[in-house]
Design a protein around this nucleic acid. Structure first.
Lengths: 336, 336
DNA sequence: GACAGATCTGGAAACGGTTGCATAAGGAAC
DNA sequence: GTTCCTTATGCAACCGTTTCCAGATCTGTC
């Protein structure tokens, strides 16, 4: 509707002056500025970033690539990203790209190539070299959350250390028959998360002199996934472990529900520990390693906007470790 | 990087011709078109919709306003919206606006006023007249999901009918001591959902000649919310009902978890029914009224893009009813 | 063979902002 | 009273695209 020319006319100044007055760049007298601001307010003028982006190259908008929306970690990330970006005046445009989506190529070659974003945040998606280069050629900074992409600044917890800590907690309670339930191949979430958590588990077990053969069982990375795995694992009383380390709280909760259904007492007959800090953890009294996705999202926005302020095309590559912490509730105890 | 001028030069034609060849509007000979297309492919040219929007007024982008991201209904809607919009070449920009967010005014007065969207989809947010008018003045069509906004085309299930159906299911099994656990004031989600589901419950009860006094108890609209409500409601064996209608599956699941902890058998001692069709419903064998959010999202996109194609500023106002269906599992049975 | 209509192409003007450059006024330093 | 710097403003060009308009060529009809 109303353009800056209307504001300028109303305020009795040139377009250039109105632009300077509203954007705060360049010299404008206080008197002129207030006239312009008043005129803009009067007709409800809001600058079109699309038009401005033509000449400035800045769009005030950030693209986000994410493989899931409904899983806890990802929805937390998303809420926090949106909040941080909104606070800084940025729009957030969402691309939901499951691991091997058919749309994937189109998103990179078409949507991301449209020059709509000042930067891109990639959450839990392993980008190929080609894809990183494509984004790089656009001259836009890129920040990752939740994994390591070569040459890209990434915010992530130390998955190996978190898994080791969880396993060590069980070992320190006196458990020796411990299993690890983690993500399966189908649900790779693209990232090496599953593998890393398994590595942390194996490391802790071996350091304690415990055998790891046949200790890992895969399942879908969800509550029903953990539930199914629990029914299978706990079905035979003779082969039942005394403790389980679940790769996520959602899996852990599924395991607990399965155990309860089978009449197995947690923690006296079975200890369960997870990773995440899921909002349901408390009602299931689940001991877990908390990560703080909202915080990770804030760090990512900070890194990205920092790079934008410095006009730098790239964020300094490298890894920022997000903190984790053990929260003890009553799903773990010494074995009987 | 590469602009249409580069493509035109490479193909040996004028900018205008290149534009026509790539957009498919106006006359272009087959020979010229293939030359232009080849040139564009060669240098990896992708048109900037920002620049185009300046003259066409179309941005190829849709704004979505949503109060939650992590709750099941909303994340399903979001995934489906993104998928439908992407398929049509539209970007989706997200505004996460909890009910009484401090950011709300800023989103309407600033972000939505920036002329970035061809249309807006509002999910589960009750818009004020002022807000509807503001969007209308921008000349952009608006479609709602999950409630009724005066003068706006909305996709929604019949909440009253769904609640009545759920309650009637319990009554038909022979229950007479039935409670309804639903959303509280704090968690109004802006919409009249809570009130409508309560109305449906009351209607069914009265039609069966049952008293409704003191039959409703509020809780947070989440699994832990239902769990807390369950502990409170089932704590006193003398005052325990034989059946509960939960306003959502998440509440229903919380109730079941609480019942199991208290040693109450579902369904023989307690029947529970919910509304939603949550992915956890099956593992808790929950009887529920399914709604299909992904389908609602598709309908919304269809309505919005339909209006855009017709150049019409408004979508024909009115209500499209999304279907629901009762799925019987084993959380409900006749009372003992 | 003239004419109308359809097809094809290019030049130039727009869209709504920002910014480089020129101009001018005011104040400080010599 | 110059000179120089800082502040303030306007004009015009520019960003990348689409589209209006004019002109050219081709086709078919009478």
């Amino acid at each position: 509707m109303s353009a800056i020319a209307d504001v300028a006319r109303l305020a009795g100044v040139a377009k250039a002056t109105a632009s300077r007055a509203l954007s705060g760049r360049g010299y404008v007298s206080d008197e002129t500025r207030s006239k312009v601001v008043a005129a803009a307010a009067l007709i409800g003028y809001v600058a079109s970033p699309n038009a401005a982006s033509l000449v400035t190259g800045r769009t005030q908008s950030v693209g986000v690539i994410i493989p899931f929306i409904s899983r806890w970690f990802f929805s937390e990330i998303l809420e926090s990203l949106e909040q941080s970006l909104l606070a800084k005046g940025y729009d957030m445009t969402l691309y939901n790209l499951p691991a091997h989506s058919v749309e994937r190529e189109r998103v990179f070659d078409f949507f991301l190539a449209r020059k709509r974003f000042d930067g891109v945040i990639s959450v839990g998606v392993e980008l190929s070299d080609t894809e990183v280069q494509l984004l790089h050629r656009l001259g836009r900074p890129l920040v990752g959350i939740g994994g390591e992409i070569p040459g890209v600044h990434t915010i992530a917890i130390d998955d190996i250390a978190a898994a080791r800590l969880a396993t060590e907690h069980l070992i320190s309670l006196g458990h020796t028959d411990i299993r690890h339930i983690g993500g399966d191949q189908v649900d790779q979430m693209d990232f090496a998360v599953h593998t890393k958590r398994l590595t942390g588990f194996n490391t802790a077990m071996r350091a304690a002199g415990l055998n790891t053969d046949g200790c890992f069982a895969p399942c879908a990375f969800t509550v029903p996934g953990g539930y199914e795995a629990g029914l299978a694992l706990f079905g035979d009383p003779h082969r039942r472990p005394t403790a389980v380390f679940a790769a996520s709280d959602e899996i852990a909760i599924g395991l607990i529900v399965a155990a309860r259904e089978l009449g197995i007492l947690v923690p006296s007959e079975l200890s369960v520990i997870g990773i995440d800090g899921h909002p349901y953890a408390e009602m299931f009294r689940l001991t877990t390693i908390e990560q703080h996705p909202r915080n990770q999202a804030r760090m990512a926005v900070e890194a990205l906007l920092g790079a934008l302020e410095q006009q730098s095309v790239t964020v300094s590559p490298g890894l920022t470790r997000a903190p984790t912490n053990l929260v003890m509730r009553s799903s773990t105890s010494a074995p009987r």
